[in-house]
């Protein structure tokens, strides 16, 4: 099975304050890949690089087996894209926007567009500039889904939408994925939303991809340990230590990734004891992952 998106050693810089650094990422075909990260972490920039809207300073990008940015137009013919903000021509009506969009995509499905228009409650004569945020989001999703794209790239598609509209949009998305077997790359900082639909997760922070793993592993692999007589050195640990903090004079809380029960032996050999192992929910895991990554960066400095 080939990868829908394959990025290697990607670099890009915007002034002294922000850069994408050595970014490598693989999105398997048929997966729903959640691209998590706090605001300003570089998610939108990565998406723009991925779609050929920005030229990379270094590295390689392949989307649907097309080299980007050179053959971005070929890849874009097979990609449905929903950007972070409304990008459509605001003076057009809903019907005109659909007709305009359809002209560029030979695979565009008129019947599907009409069905989704009805389902989303959009009127043909509504002017785009006067649509509410929710309606604009639904229109962008309608266009992307009606293309019958093999890959959907969605940049914060539900950000700022009310729960009802969010649910409608996600339901349409899940339905589409089930019927088309499409790959979905969905960027968001709404962790719980990603948890419901994604099977892969990539976490971005400060222009770096700090983790990329299956959702199952992400969900179950990050634990909080209560450690008595915690060892000072953890270099040879069989897990990744994301953070540690003292709770009492002798006890510490450790957040670790890749934890297995058998790893208790490592603590015993170091003269310590694991008193409790606690599962973290996805949001806590995400926060701890970010803290761990930021701590590592600080240590290097």
């Amino acid at each position: 099975m080939t990868d829908a998106i394959r990025i290697r050693d990607l670099a890009w810089r915007a002034g002294p304050d922000f850069a994408i650094r050595a970014l490598s990422m693989t999105v398997p075909t048929g997966s729903i890949y959640g691209f998590l990260g706090p605001n300003g972490s570089g998610k939108t920039t990565t998406i723009r690089l991925m779609l050929g809207m920005l030229p990379p300073a270094d590295g390689t990008i392949e989307v649907l087996s097309h080299a980007i940015p050179r053959f971005a137009h070929r890849a874009l013919a097979r990609i449905g894209f929903v950007p972070e903000r409304l990008h459509l021509y605001q003076s057009l009506t809903v019907d005109e926007a659909i007709r305009f969009h359809r002209a560029f995509y030979p695979t565009f499905d008129d019947a599907e567009a009409e069905r989704l228009r009805g389902r989303f409650g959009l009127r043909e004569d509504q002017v785009i500039g006067r649509l509410s945020k929710g309606e604009a989001g639904k229109l962008m999703m309608l266009l992307a889904l009606s293309q019958r794209a093999e890959l959907l790239v969605l940049d914060e598609p539900t950000d700022g939408l009310d729960p009802v509209v969010r649910r409608e949009v996600l339901a349409a998305l899940v339905e589409y994925v089930e019927s088309q077997r499409a790959t979905v790359f969905i960027s968001s900082h709404l962790v719980h939303e990603q948890e419901r639909i994604c099977d892969w997760v990539g976490v971005m922070d400060g222009g770096r991809l700090i983790a990329e793993l299956p959702m199952q592993e992400f969900r179950s692999g990050i634990k909080r340990l209560r450690v008595a007589q915690a060892p000072t050195v953890h270099d040879a640990a069989p897990f990744a230590l994301l953070s540690r903090e003292a709770v009492t004079l002798h006890d510490e809380n450790w957040v670790v990734r890749g934890w297995q029960p058998a790893m208790q032996e490592w603590f015993q050999r170091a003269g310590s004891e694991v008193r409790a192992v606690q599962d973290l929910d996805l949001e806590d895991s995400f926060v701890e992952l970010l803290r761990g990554a930021r701590g590592t960066v600080e240590e290097r400095r």
Partner: peptide, 17 residues
Amino acid sequence: NLDAAAKHVYALSLPLP
């Protein structure tokens, strides 16, 4: 001005050079 209002994102996302 109309293209620039959305930073040309729509035009750039269309499948043509």
